[in-house]
Lab assay of single mutants.
Amino acid sequence: DETGKFLVLALYDYQEKSPREVTAKKGDILTLLNSTNKDWWKVEVNGRQGFVPAAYVKFL
């Protein structure tokens, strides 16, 4: 159920650099879980949760 969740689009490829991050490919649609940090947003992609740089994604 996606009610109340926001989707964001990956603008660039991002390769995770730590276990707390997730890899995303340009064009991926990610479920935004938390955007309270202006630099790192928590997302879910391909069943995995983790952080990506906020500058790499935008709201749909």
Rank of each mutant, 00 (worst) to 15 (best):
D1A: 14
T3V: 13
T3I: 12
G4M: 12
G4I: 12
G4D: 10
G4K: 14
K5F: 12
K5L: 13
F6W: 14
F6N: 10
L7A: 05
V8G: 05
V8N: 01
L9N: 01
L9S: 03
L9H: 02
L9Q: 10
A10P: 01
L11K: 04
L11R: 03
L11A: 04
D13E: 07
D13M: 06
D13N: 06
Y14N: 01
Y14F: 08
Q15G: 07
E16Q: 13
E16H: 07
E16K: 14
K17T: 11
K17M: 11
K17I: 05
K17L: 08
K17E: 07
S18P: 04
P19V: 09
P19L: 08
P19I: 09
P19R: 09
R20E: 13
R20V: 11
R20H: 14
R20W: 15
E21N: 03
V22M: 06
V22S: 03
T23C: 08
A24L: 15
A24H: 05
K26V: 07
D28L: 07
D28I: 06
D28Y: 06
D28H: 04
I29T: 04
L30T: 02
T31D: 02
L32S: 01
L32H: 01
L32N: 00
L33E: 00
L33M: 05
L33F: 03
L33I: 14
N34F: 08
N34M: 07
S35L: 07
S35Y: 10
S35Q: 10
T36Y: 10
T36R: 09
T36F: 10
N37F: 07
N37V: 04
K38E: 10
D39E: 11
D39V: 13
D39L: 13
D39M: 12
W40Q: 00
W41C: 07
W41H: 01
K42F: 15
K42L: 15
V43G: 02
E44M: 07
E44Y: 06
V45C: 08
V45N: 09
V45L: 14
V45A: 09
V45T: 09
N46D: 11
N46A: 09
N46K: 08
G47L: 06
G47Y: 05
G47M: 04
R48M: 08
Q49K: 09
Q49Y: 07
G50N: 00
F51I: 05
F51S: 01
F51Q: 01
V52N: 03
V52D: 01
P53A: 06
P53C: 09
A54I: 06
A54E: 03
A54H: 03
A55D: 09
A55P: 06
Y56T: 10
Y56K: 04
Y56C: 15
V57W: 03
V57Q: 00
K58P: 02
K58M: 15
F59S: 10
F59C: 15
L60Y: 11
